[in-house]
């Protein structure tokens, strides 16, 4: 990078008002974690799932290593069931920010045609996400993987460390976690072992949205309300525009203004009815929301403690 480029860049940004102290503190902490992991591990990688948390994570990574490039690749686990708008957004970001992007899909799952409809959400998640992630981490010999998980998301995540230790077969043992004091992180591992690092641990959903607003971070359009086709199934609004979608007997395909609070595989991610078409609208809606963002996620409802179980097995 030439200094002239760097100066031009900073002049562009002079007009932006400073972050409020709360978001600034969260940003500082995340940058600290990024730098520490990048310095301590040989082969870090950043899990990139295209959603709002990943978008914030990516923005923070760019800040942490500025004026340099992000010194590690981004890994996307593509289950084959992501919204098409997510994939085009991913490719656009990779181009715009000159990212080193690795995409992996479980070849076994592809061959066996694993589908959340025919095999159920639990098996689909096992094979296309958890197993696929293990494959990709092994193949890249990554010893540290950044993720965008937040402690406020779900009860088992409230006890997750910022450096979360994993055995060579990617298992998490919640009863035997390393103590984590101050901001001194223990990055010592043996060959084959790894850590998952979570720079957004202390962020809440509201923080994420307020930061996206303050920093003007681009997001996939699915977060904003638009007229989309869907059905109501098991109390969830399921997107119905993919050619693999099949309506069940008695189901009516409806069309209305809907949007998504979280993004995942479309058959497992419920939408909400909403007219929030701008970031301001989304935040206003969030501040009066009475249900959590994971309410739309089928994966959490399989059984009590289902996230903990998945995490023990290596799910992010």
């Amino acid at each position: 990078m030439h200094i002239s480029e760097f100066d031009a860049h900073t002049q562009d940004k002079q007009v932006k008002p400073p972050l409020d102290p709360h978001l600034k503190a969260l940003e500082n902490e995340a940058i600290h974690i990024f730098r520490e992991v990048a310095a301590e591990f040989e082969r870090p990688v950043m899990l990139y799932s295209i959603g709002k948390d990943s978008s914030v994570l990516l923005h923070l990574a760019r800040k942490a290593f500025y004026p340099g490039r992000i010194p590690f690749p981004l890994l996307h686990i593509d289950t084959g069931w992501k919204f098409p708008e997510m994939i085009s957004f991913r490719d656009e970001m990779a181009k715009r920010f000159d990212l080193d992007l690795v995409v992996h899909t479980n070849p076994r799952g592809l061959k066996e045609n694993i589908s959340p409809f025919t095999h159920g959400s639990a098996l689909h998640t096992d094979i296309m996400k958890t197993e696929a992630l293990r494959q990709a981490l092994d193949a890249g010999q990554y010893d540290a993987a950044f993720g965008g998980a937040r402690r406020d998301e779900e009860a088992s995540r409230a006890k997750e460390r910022i450096y979360s230790f994993r055995t060579p077969d990617h298992k998490w043992d919640p009863r035997n976690q390393r103590p984590e004091l101050w901001n001194v992180y223990n990055g010592m591992i043996r060959r084959g072992e790894s850590v998952r690092a979570f720079p957004l641990s202390n962020w809440t959903e509201v923080d994420i949205w307020r930061y996206i607003q303050a920093e003007n971070i681009p997001l996939p359009p699915l977060y904003y309300a638009a007229k989309r086709k869907f059905v109501e199934r098991d109390g969830m609004l399921m997107w119905a525009e993919d050619k693999r979608f099949e309506a069940l007997p008695g189901e009516q395909i409806q069309e209305d203004y809907i949007r998504f609070r979280t993004l995942g595989c479309w058959p497992l991610t419920g939408a909400i009815k909403s007219h929030a078409t701008t970031l301001d609208d989304v935040i206003a809606e969030l501040e009066i929301a009475t249900v959590s963002e994971r309410q739309g996620r089928a994966i959490d409802r399989d059984q009590a403690g289902s996230m903990e179980k998945k995490k023990r097995e290596g799910y992010f």
């Binding site: 402690r151 406020d152 779900e154 009860a155 088992s156 995540r157 409230a158 006890k159 919640p174 009863r175 976690q177 641990s201 202390n202 809440t204 509201v206 009590a304 403690g305 903990e308 179980k309």
Partner: peptide, 23 residues
């Protein structure tokens, strides 16, 4: 709500540091 880990729910005890957020 607070005792997030299955082992804790089963034993009815809190075994580790958990972080909570409110504003």
């Amino acid at each position: 709500l607070l005792d997030g880990l299955q082992a804790e729910r089963e034993q009815g005890i809190t075994i580790d540091v958990a972080y909570r957020y409110f504003a």
